[in-house]
């Protein structure tokens, strides 16, 4: 009697369904955790990259302050962070962070400050090896090499 309303097919469909459900949950949660990790990794890397760039700008600023007439400083930075391209906004002055580093997907942004006595030109460049130059007008400029 206990075998009534059951068939081999129902039994099969149910076990497949339950297994699929469990495995989907597993896959989705792994994916989500990887996405979280990726975001964290990008944030940490943007911070490091930003600080290296800030240090180079400060270094160029010191050289300009020491009487430099021609200052060109290359700073080797990765082109992609955790597989994502990024942008650097240089906008010194009050009301905005000195350096804003951003990726778009996932959207992560990190701001880094620097101290300078030579004016630094506002500019947006894409990530990768960058060059800090003392331009003809006496301002420091961040450019792609």
């Amino acid at each position: 009697m206990s075998d009534r309303a059951l068939s081999v097919t129902v039994n099969y469909v149910m076990s497949i369904g339950i297994a699929t459900l469990l495995l989907s949950v597993l896959i989705v949660s792994t994916g989500a955790s990887i996405e979280d990790r990726r975001e964290e990794a990008i944030r940490a890397e943007l911070e490091v990259v930003g600080q290296r760039l800030a240090a180079s700008i400060e270094s160029a600023d010191r050289l300009a302050g020491a009487g430099g007439e021609d200052v060109v400083l290359d700073v080797a930075l990765p082109e992609r962070l955790a597989g994502k391209a990024y942008e650097v906004q240089v906008s010194p002055g009050p009301g905005s962070p000195d350096l804003l580093l951003e990726t778009s997907d996932p959207a992560v942004s990190v701001s880094v400050g620097f101290t300078n006595s030579t004016p630094v030109e506002s500019k947006t460049v894409s990530g990768g090896t960058l060059r800090v130059v003392l331009a003809d007008d006496g301002d420091l400029e961040v450019r792609a090499p």
């Binding site: 009487g67 007439e69 200052v71 400083l73 290359d74």
Partner: peptide, 10 residues
């Protein structure tokens, strides 16, 4: 150097 070019009149 490989990463830096600097000139100043002193």
């Amino acid at each position: 150097t490989a990463d830096l070019r600097y000139r100043a009149e002193v």
